[in-house]
């Protein structure tokens, strides 16, 4: 029971990270119908910007933890958002009305480019930072001496993610910008006829997705204390799996899917084998697509002649 509870806490923490990345995939898929393959690498760039910000703050002597975290968060979101914008502007905009394969290939190229660009500029070795938030609350101890620990870091992660997701859902549901975004998602041509600036809306979608991915990247850095240029590939694939699992195109679906993938991965590692945890995530993806191609919360896609 205690062991289970501990895994649950760990799983929810990991799921929060995947959920944040998955939102970017699902929004872009919803509006453009393409898999933004480079999104995982945008997440990685978010982590790197956070490392660099952390080091700059260290040089400037601003090390009060809450302030430093806020700075890292904002700076990572801004600069990664610019990357998200540039990826769309350079790689995808010209291909918007092209055949379905072209944007995907362009996205794969973009992903390869970003990975190697970061490797070239920052070196192939992983970057480690000292833990910024340590300690935690001990919830209970089993008779065998296993202690369930809810780290302060995990609390911060879950709190930040919850706040961001609620705020983001409100942004999409209530504001004019969110309305425009949803309008483009439903019918881009009609939205344009009604005066929505489609290019601007799509750019904003990419910026928002990248900003959320940047938060995920920073959290990843804080949680694992380490980041390298290759981390985006696997995390990106898993987050995409989460988006598909939840039903691609659906925001609550992405969050739910992220949570589930995090839980599946952690429980699989805890009860079966650590080596095959990635296989488990992919196997789930395949099973979901075979038995419920629209995902858990997705709308069925009607095929028109």
């Amino acid at each position: 029971m205690e062991y289970f509870l501990q895994q649950l806490i760990n799983g929810v923490t990991l799921g929060a990270i995947f959920g944040l990345i998955a939102i970017g995939y699902t929004m872009v898929y919803g509006i453009l119908g393409m898999v933004n393959f480079a999104h995982g690498d945008v997440f990685m760039i978010g982590g790197f910007v956070a490392v660099i910000t952390f080091l700059i703050l260290g040089v400037l002597g601003l090390t009060w933890v809450p302030f430093a975290l806020l700075c890292m968060l904002l700076i990572a979101m801004v600069f990664t958002g610019v990357h998200g914008w540039a990826v769309e502007r350079i790689g995808y905009r010209a291909l918007r009305n092209s055949n379905r394969l072209a944007p995907l290939i362009s996205a794969i190229g973009m992903s390869i480019f970003l990975q190697n660009y970061v490797q070239l500029l920052q070196g192939a070795r992983n970057k480690a930072i000292p833990p910024m938030i340590s300690g935690g609350v001990e919830l209970m101890t089993s008779p065998t001496g296993f202690t369930v620990k809810f780290g302060y870091m995990q609390m911060v992660i879950i709190a930040v993610t919850t706040v961001l997701m609620v705020g983001f859902s409100l942004l999409i549901a209530r504001t004019s910008m969110g309305r425009q975004q949803r309008a483009c998602e439903q019918d881009m041509r009609m939205a344009r006829l009604l005066g929505v600036d489609v290019d601007r809306t799509i750019s904003l979608t990419f910026i928002m997705g990248a900003a959320l991915a940047a938060v995920a990247g920073m959290i990843w850095l804080l949680y694992y204390g380490i980041i390298d240029f290759y981390v985006g590939f696997l995390a990106g694939i898993k987050a995409f799996t989460a988006a598909v699992l939840g039903g691609i195109g659906s925001l609550p679906g992405a969050m739910l899917g992220g949570l589930l993938i995090g839980l599946i991965e952690v429980f699989w590692s805890a009860y079966f084998s650590v080596e095959y945890k990635d296989v488990a995530a992919f196997a789930i993806l395949v099973l979901v697509l075979i038995f419920r191609p629209t995902g858990l919360l997705g709308q069925p896609d009607i095929e028109k002649v």
Binding site: G91, A94, A102, I108, S111, I112, F113, Q115, Q119
Partner: peptide
Amino acid sequence: EAYRMVAFGALMVAIMVWRPQ
């Protein structure tokens, strides 16, 4: 070596943008 894969990725994007077919 170091620039090879960067160029490879950039080339993929450039060819697709220029000539999607």
